[in-house]
Design a binder for these strands. Structure first.
Length: 573
DNA sequence: ACTAATATATTG
DNA sequence: CAATATATTAGT
């Protein structure tokens, strides 16, 4: 509730008081970014408040991821792109912030403002900042935004997380939240956690991190293996859109050159094995307990090498490809990675399960036994960049339950993806074929090829319905979605959802729909991050108290992961 | 195509 | 009934 209010407030403030946004308002200058940033800052403040339990999984995950990634990234990211970056951090912040606001608010806030937000914003009304709606940026821009948020680089990570840190510890959150604030702030807080990485990482790596998380949770395992788009993958990375040929937008293009560098590096992971162990350890049982005298199974990624409890898997990085070609190649690369890994794993003394392959055999489950899930994130990179998927290996103890959950989740995701596919009528065939799934991902370049860009047409009517359903499902207010994701007003969104014009009749309005479409494609994590706060908070709530029956599955999943991560963090600390 | 404002619905 | 969310509408 609170959150809602805040959000609304933001809106209100923004709308009504254009004044607030000094520059922003017109801001013509930087249409897209501003609003977001402002929002973020605000939110961030609030985050600390929530009870640890509730804390959004996203955040946690993010944090974790962040931690893993290295700190370095964060800083850069933050600075780099205003809008995007900001958003990212914010996302987490947003959520909490709202809640917190009441409590903490002010102090942090200010700080935040100082950093991220333009001085112009008056701290006074925290929310006001949020509101500023700006003209839609060209999709491209948007895409950037997303990409940044989510996962910049090829990977498509999300931005989310920073806040995540908060999860586990409220305290931390505060600091972190504010990405904006200062990274410094964050860093300080975060450091606590584990590794510097935590601090602020931004989304970049996140994707990987996310993957990690998921794995930890148990989610991912399957995903990896199958080409089918698992959650994480779905996002961007995946071989480009095999799944979502439609959009294409961002993914590919921007890609940011950045991606390349990161990707590989990212792969390295978060080096910090330190965390790993934590992750590995199940929340339930402290790692220490489980671990046998023998060297605890850790996964270390160095560069391209993964070391699993003693066993090293070498991952070959895909060679950078040109944009167009990239897909196919990437795919290939992915396979190779998988294969190798698998092999290695097999060899490994300990029972290792890869992907779905994992069968929860008792042995595997056994404390000693460790299951390794490898997640591949394929990132599309443009330019020469590569994508690389970075396979991440996470060691987790597997529980049957977890597996099931994962599966369910995956299924859901897949369904969702299919749904999305349907939305686009594009000439492409889209992959509706769906099933193809497995291989499909990889394959399909053709359709996508054209791609990316422009993309196909979008079945606006259906898209509108889907969006409406999702908003409802997560209890995301139109105002928030409109603002955060679409950069439009609530009224506009309402109108678009209720009376979507046929794609053919849309002019500039197409961008708005594209954004929606894109959002739908994103994995939940990303979606949430996009919504930032809003999204997360909602999700969380729901999860906690399942409002909607269906909602839960996905949500639950998320929560679990979050919770798990929280535990892990706590332990680590 | 949108926003802002406002009316109307929901929800607690 | 208050707080919010959503639908409408007038005005750019």
């Amino acid at each position: 509730m609170e959150n809602m209010g805040e959000l609304s407030d933001q809106r209100m403030g923004g709308g009504g008081g254009d004044e607030q946004q000094p520059g922003g308002g017109d801001a013509s200058g930087v249409p897209t970014c501003d609003p977001v940033e402002a929002v973020h800052s605000v939110d961030s403040v609030g985050s600390g408040v929530e009870p640890p339990e509730l804390l959004p999984a996203h955040e946690i995950a993010s944090e974790i991821a962040a931690t893993r990634h290295e700190s370095g990234d964060e800083t850069e990211e933050v600075v780099e792109e205003d809008c995007d970056e900001v958003t990212v951090t914010d996302s987490g912040a947003m959520i909490d912030a709202a809640d917190f606001r009441g409590v903490l608010s002010e102090p942090t806030y200010q700080t935040l403002n100082g950093r991220m937000t333009p001085p112009g914003f008056a701290p006074s009304s925290s929310y006001a900042t949020l509101t500023p709606l700006q003209p839609l940026p060209p999709i491209s821009t948007v895409s950037d935004k997303f990409s940044h948020h989510y996962g910049h680089h090829g990977n498509g990570g999300f931005a989310l997380m920073q806040n995540a840190a908060g999860l586990g510890m409220a305290n931390i959150n505060y600091h972190s939240q504010y990405d904006k604030l200062g990274t410094a702030m964050v860093a300080a807080g975060m450091n606590m956690n584990v590794s510097p990485t935590l601090g602020v990482t931004s989304a970049h790596h996140v994707s990987n991190a996310v993957a990690m998380m998921s794995t930890a949770n148990g989610m991912s395992s399957q995903a990896n293996v199958l080409p089918s788009p698992p959650y994480p993958s779905n996002g961007l990375n995946s071989p480009d859109k095999s799944l979502s040929p439609n959009n294409g937008y961002d993914y590919t293009h921007h890609q940011r050159g950045l991606g390349s560098p990161q990707s590989p590096s990212s792969v390295n992971l978060h080096s910090p094995t330190s965390l790993m162990p934590a992750l590995n350890g199940l929340p339930s049982t402290p790692p220490s307990a489980h671990l046998p005298p023998s060297p605890p199974p850790q996964v270390t990624c160095t560069g391209s090498h993964l070391t699993l409890s003693g066993v090293s898997a070498v991952i070959t990085a895909s060679a950078p490809h040109h944009n167009n070609h990239s897909q196919p190649q990437q795919v290939t690369a992915a396979h190779t990675h998988e294969v190798k890994v698998a092999t290695t794993l097999t060899a490994a003394p300990q029972p290792v399960t890869v992907l779905q392959a994992v069968t929860p055999t008792p042995a595997a489950i056994a404390p000693t036994a460790q299951t390794v899930t490898i997640v591949q994130a394929a990132a599309a990179a443009n330019l020469a960049t590569t994508i690389v998927s970075t396979p991440v290996a996470v060691v987790t103890t597997a529980n049957n339950a977890l597996h099931q959950q994962q599966q369910q989740q995956q299924q859901q995701q897949q369904q969702a993806q299919q749904m999305n596919a349907n939305l686009s009528s594009a000439g492409h065939q889209k992959q509706t074929g769906g099933q193809s799934s497995k291989n499909s991902n990889i394959s399909q370049p053709a359709s996508a090829s054209s791609s990316a860009d422009e993309v196909e047409e979008i079945n606006t009517k259906e898209l509108a319905q889907r969006i409406s359903a999702e908003l409802k499902r997560y209890s995301i207010p139109q105002a928030i979605f409109a603002q955060r994701v679409l950069c439009r007003s609530q009224g506009t969104l309402s109108d678009l959802l209720r009376n979507p014009k046929p794609w053919s009749k849309l002019k500039s309005g197409r961008e708005t729909f594209r954004r929606m479409y894109k959002w739908l494609e994103e994995p939940e994590f990303q979606r949430m991050s996009a919504l930032r706060l809003a999204g997360e908070s909602y999700a969380i709530r729901e999860i906690c108290s399942p409002p909607t029956p269906q909602a839960q599955p996905a949500e639950a999943f998320v929560l679990r992961s979050f919770l798990d991560s929280c535990f892990l963090f706590a332990k680590a600390l």
